[in-house]
Amino acid sequence: MFDKLFYQEKGFFLQSFHPAAVLVYLCVFLVLSLLYENPLYLLALLFLLAFLIRGVDGMEAWEGFLKAGVFLMLMVMIINPLVIRSGATIIWHGPAVPYLGKLNISMEAMYYGAASGIRLLVLISIFCLYNQMINPDRVLKLFSRVAGKSVLMIALSTRMFPTMVRDLKRIKEVQQFRGVDFDEGSLWEKARKYSCLYNVLLLSSLEGSMEIAESMQARAFGSGKRSVYSRNMLRPRDIICTGGSFLALSAAIWGLRYGCGLYTFYPEADFLIKDSTTLIALSVVLFYLSMPLILNEGWNYCRFLKSKI
């Protein structure tokens, strides 16, 4: 069930980038999704993300991620119109409610709720793309130089997690063979049986951790300064991707200084496209952000480009 949500090595070009390049690229995406307020800009980011996710064959996982975000999105969309009084176009005069006052639902407040919903989808999609595009182990290795022990602990517990679930099943089976029926009895009795299960799991896993510690010590862990070895290559594709990310960020900041990407919702919603600069600024940012997609197409269809990147 969870397999689809995780990174799988599928041999796509988009999965072959240096982890640092992908991290920079996705960070720029994250910053832009938080800085932009114009719904058009947010939608454009969402579309670009959809193309990228399709490029790594992650549409199925994306669906799962989006489903998870719908509840939060609905909550934001309902609360916003209820509390915001700044909107000018009232579409429903509601009754007076204690503490909140008169419930007047305005068009602008609903609009803002919808725009926030799009932002949430963009944020979720960024992390979905992260899960599909980059091997978590390679990211961890990137940080092992600065925070070796934290990285080791994260890697260890990620590995331990499936073992834990397997252990739980094993202990349950052993108990069942000894005659414990987990489905029988009142709620209180069931709870007591499960609490025994938990105690055994805690004891056996902590015992296991002591063995791990001893085997780590036997392999000279913590005996001196640790050495770091990295096999990640920085190729032209990574430089182009990182360069594109920085150019996109600078273009976006430059645009934001002149109001491209900003938006006023209250008292009356602004025009979605104020003038041609709005579109030009958006296309420049999108062009720089599409670098990995362009390279992906080049890799698939242009032999010359393939030989160079």
Binding site: L156, S157, M160, S205, L206, A213
Partner: peptide
Amino acid sequence: LMLGMEKKGELSTRQVAVIAMLTALCTA
């Protein structure tokens, strides 16, 4: 916070293993 906690004094091997195991248990 994570960097500070890691750098301030050495975490022993057993502490590392116990933290990893308890985290796995909590995660599960």
